[in-house]
Design a protein around this nucleic acid. Sequence first.
DNA 1: GCGTCCAGGTCTACC
DNA 2: GGTAGACCTGGACGC
Length: 319
Amino acid sequence: MTLLRHSFSIRFAPKAPYDFTLTVRKPAGWTLFSSIEAFEKGFLWTAAHIEGILVGMKLSSEGTVDAPQVVAELFTERRMPTRRQKAIGRALRRNIGADDDLGGFYDIARRDDILKHVLDDLYGMHSTSQSTIFPDAALAILLQMAPIKRSNAMIDCFITNYGEMAEFEARRIPSWPLPAQLAGRDPAELAKACKLGYRAKRLVELAKKIDSEGFPDTEELERLAPEESKRLLLGLPGIGPYSADIVDPHGGFPIDVWSADVFGKLFFGEEPKDKRADIECIKTEGLRRWGKWSWMAFLYVVQDLENLSKKLEIKLRLI
DNA sequence: GCGTCCAGGTCTACC
DNA sequence: GGTAGACCTGGACGC
């Protein structure tokens, strides 16, 4: 437990359109940083390591979708000098997609037979990210070969037991574990404590590799060529094509057994006969159809499945 | 109740 | 280089 007794505030204007609620708490229940964060009456309480520092956050919006204003009250263990405050603020802006321009995506989405149906519901929803790749990489490992209910149970247990607990404003929010916190752990202990099965070994191996050899952070990966970024990610233990597409800041099209069913029906009008075998074919069609906007298209579709099912009169498996 | 199947993949041994 | 088979666990399903 780490008590975050010092605080500072920042305020900034994201690039419109920006819907704060849709962005930080996605309709399908996706959280911003921690899987265990509180969203009440327009305020999000969450915690994450930013710039290597555990930061508790109370985020809210005082603007509108077309004239957005985000207010962030940030909590740290030690008093932050102005320079560090600015660095944390810059990273947070980046994490919540505040500077991302949705214009190009909306241009192609309005002309697309699938995406045109989701724009009204999700207008102003931005993609978000973490500062380092470890949380998303660990998340991807915990999503492998398990129903979503079990994955959620594993994630919550993993974060609660092995992450650093941030205490601020009478709230306790667990953050994702850092590689250094996990590298020395016995995989058998993790497997037993959170029923992670074979995933425990992969998590510890991933943590050891990143902790001992280092790895580019999200911003550095984005500056690399997409092929190089993907190559580096695929070199990590436990990270295959599906997980790399979740983690890669260049944006991928992460098709697994569940999304193969959804996108198979959307693209070809029927669910794949052999979902695993057809994953590559469905992924190819998504990348052909949406190109550099494939990740945004994936995000918008999976956040609006119920509406899309009704509009297209197709039965889609919900998350 | 009990046994079997398989799920938001990846790794490895074997050919 | 391509490809079965193994890997944890627990809910769903058939009997």
